[in-house]
């Protein structure tokens, strides 16, 4: 348990402080722990709930599920692509120019995505507007490139990008669903913008004759929705912590019975 905790903390430190990246950037971890990468991306270090990166697109475009899903998918693809590319060049780019190089890579992927969306999902492209090019400035992507992909082999980097992107997308879609449900009383409206004609009838009208709650669709509603999601995550984490502590206490203290161990529960 302690071993696992310390490893996780190390990853967390890397993410929160990319500048701490030291000279050992070429050092690859001997065996990549995929379970941990997945856990980190989806839950423990979730870019949207824990790192709070990429807040701007998250708050701006999540007024409906389809907008959230569109931007989430675009970010996911850019994240996976940039992580792979950065991982490939990690041993050939010098320390001094690494950040410009990363940004160039991310910008190229973003431009490709933008062109693809313009070609295949033109209406969604117009709705998302400036937030597609702004994927370049999403700190979550640069953060992963610098903290993970630049010091890990290709496969773990790709998995990390995928999981971080999924974690981001899941929260985006959850927030979009919340805001769409409260704001308009529907779910999955206009999904054909993303999935074509087969999605024309996906719209679920949850409440009939619903008065539109404009507040939930406006950005302040997004802040409150995100706050509730973070509170929910913290609540589950706290509960889980208590459960583990209780299980530990049940197993019985390993120490001598005479010693009173007060701080053990924590």
């Amino acid at each position: 348990m302690t071993m696992k905790m310390s490893a996780q903390t190390a990853v967390a430190d890397d993410v929160q402080d990319p500048s701490s990246q030291s000279t050992d950037s070429a050092e690859a971890k001997p065996t990549a722990n995929y379970a941990e990468i997945i856990y980190n991306g989806i839950w423990k270090n979730n870019p949207a709930l824990v790192q709070l990166l990429g807040l701007c697109p998250m708050l701006a475009v999540t007024s409906t599920v389809v907008n959230a899903l569109g931007l989430g998918l675009a970010t996911l693809v850019v994240l996976v692509g940039s992580n792979i590319a950065v991982s490939i060049i990690r041993n050939y780019v010098s320390e001094a120019v690494r950040l410009p190089a990363f940004v160039m890579i991310i910008a190229s992927f973003t431009t490709s995505i933008e062109l693809i969306m313009q070609a295949y999902t033109y209406e969604l492209y117009q709705i998302l507007g400036i937030f597609i090019p702004l994927i370049v400035t999403n700190c979550a992507i640069l953060g992963r490139a610098d903290a993970f992909a630049s010091r890990n082999p290709i496969l773990p980097s790709a998995i990390d990008g995928l999981m971080m992107g999924l974690g981001f997308m899941v929260i985006l879609v959850a927030l979009g669903a919340m805001r769409e449900l409260i704001g308009q009383g529907t779910l999955f409206s206009d999904m054909h913008l993303l999935f074509g004609d087969m999605a024309l009838h996906w719209k679920l009208t949850v409440f009939q004759n619903y008065p539109n709650v404009l507040f939930a669709i406006l950005p302040p509603g997004a802040f409150i929705g995100l706050g509730l999601l973070i509170a929910g995550k913290n609540y589950f984490d706290e509960k889980e912590k208590k459960r583990i502590a209780a299980a530990k206490a049940e197993a019985g203290p390993a120490e001598s019975k005479r010693v009173r161990v007060t701080g053990q529960a924590g």
Binding site: P211, V213, L214, F215, A216
Partner: peptide
């Protein structure tokens, strides 16, 4: 303010 913004 919430209801003023939401239900004009």
């Amino acid at each position: 303010a919430i209801v003023l913004v939401s239900f004009p």
